[in-house]
Amino acid sequence: MAIVFQKTRGLTDVETHYCPGCTHGIVHRLVGEVLEELGVLDIAIGVAPVGCAVLAYKYFNCDMHEAAHGRAPAVATGIKRVHPENFVFTYQGDGDLASIGTAEIVHAAHRGEKISTIFINNAIYGMTGGQMAPTTLVGQKATTAPYGRDEAHCGKPIRIAEMLATIDGAKFVERVTVTSPAHVRKAKKAIKECFKVQIEGKGFGIVEVLSTCPTNWGLTPTEALKWLEDNMIPYYPLGNFKRPEEVE
């Protein structure tokens, strides 16, 4: 008898506070597994954001630091510069990274800080109750856009992965999702590659993960996965935007 799958050492035994069916849990697990498999769990320092993942410091089984809203890349920069031998990652949502923290992430990437970022894009502000985020799709309803996002008033949603890929300091940029077992495997591969970029000292890496918010979208967890595939993937195409060139 062989164990095919069991809980990773990268996560603590604390039960998460996430709503049923929230894909945060899947991404937490992938990050924990990758930290364990790359052997950096004991030297990893994570920076938790403000948003639904604000309590992430209780869930990852490594040293964690809490940052002010959007400032995780700035805090991670400080930690990495003082402890260059440690592995430093940030875990941020779209209200955190794509809105109030856009300056921090852009400049952390621009400076080529040797940190890794996991960016959860669920097209809405989850923790505060479903307000419109910069990533909310045109026509998508939110509590602050009851008739759906109006392009004439709010513009189109921001594509963070494409934007960061234009920055020289960003060495690894990929967008993945976790709507099916196949996508989960691909997401894990991307996170692993992203973390390796930091371990090999090549520079900044980010993985954008398209996620669901069943509660604030007003859908069941299964319907939410379908909604993501039908509506978000056409606007936020999956795939790798940048990876370090192979050294000859």
């Binding site: 799958f5 998460t16 077992p181």
Partner: peptide
């Protein structure tokens, strides 16, 4: 069939899969 698809999708990591 021990494919672990359920465990891969579980957000709360409550599933352990064994192959007999």
């Amino acid at each position: 069939i021990a494919c672990a698809s359920c465990a891969l999708m579980c957000p709360d990591v409550v599933i352990t899969v064994e192959r007999l």
